[in-house]
Simulated scan of single mutants.
Amino acid sequence: MFHTLILVAHVVVAVALIALVLLQQGKGADAGAAFGSGASSTMFGSQGSASFLSRTTAILATVFFMTSLTLAYFSTQISVPKSVVERVQLEKPIESPKASGPSDVPQLPQK
């Protein structure tokens, strides 16, 4: 159950991380803000959303790596048969054929 909880958290953090990265502006967008393109009227203030989004992205990236390491640890702890032969459980052991005596061996024709 704990494995499933970590897996769900991992997927949610991955989607949130993707969304935050897509929300951030590139470095070239700062040049337009210097000439008064309305950066002071943003929701996050005159500095913009860079520090808030960058900090949140760093936190989510750390959580993502922690959940990745936790899931990797859990996957090594689960014991799974490594081959098909180990998975098959025979109900009865196979009996070896009885050894044939000298009278059972067919004779080759003599020349």
Rank of each mutant, 00 (worst) to 15 (best):
Q107F: 05
H10M: 11
G36L: 09
G32L: 13
T4W: 07
E91I: 12
A9C: 12
E86Q: 12
I94L: 07
S49C: 12
A61S: 15
V105N: 03
V15K: 02
G38V: 14
R55W: 09
P93C: 05
Q77A: 13
E95Y: 00
F52C: 00
P106H: 04
A99C: 05
A39E: 04
F52G: 00
Q77K: 12
A14V: 09
V80Y: 05
F44P: 00
A61L: 14
Q89N: 05
T4D: 06
G36M: 04
L90I: 11
V21T: 15
D30Y: 10
V105W: 02
F52K: 03
V11F: 09
S103T: 00
L5Y: 10
V80F: 06
T67A: 15
V8E: 04
A19S: 07
I59K: 08
K92N: 12
P109N: 10
I94M: 06
P106C: 07
S68I: 02
V8Y: 05
V63W: 03
Q77P: 01
V84F: 15
G45L: 03
S79K: 15
A39N: 06
T57N: 09
V15G: 01
V12N: 08
M43N: 10
R87W: 05
G32R: 14
Q77F: 12
V13L: 06
G45T: 14
L71R: 02
S40W: 08
E86N: 05
V80E: 08
V11R: 04
F52M: 10
K111N: 02
Y73S: 14
F35M: 11
E95G: 02
T42V: 08
G32M: 15
H3T: 09
I18D: 00
A19W: 04
T67L: 06
T57H: 04
K82D: 11
F64V: 03
S103V: 08
S54C: 11
K111C: 00
G45E: 04
K27H: 11
R87V: 09
A29T: 08
G26A: 07
Q89E: 10
A16I: 05
T62L: 14
L20A: 06
A9I: 11
K27A: 09
G26M: 07
I94V: 13
E95I: 03
A33T: 08
A39T: 05
V88D: 03
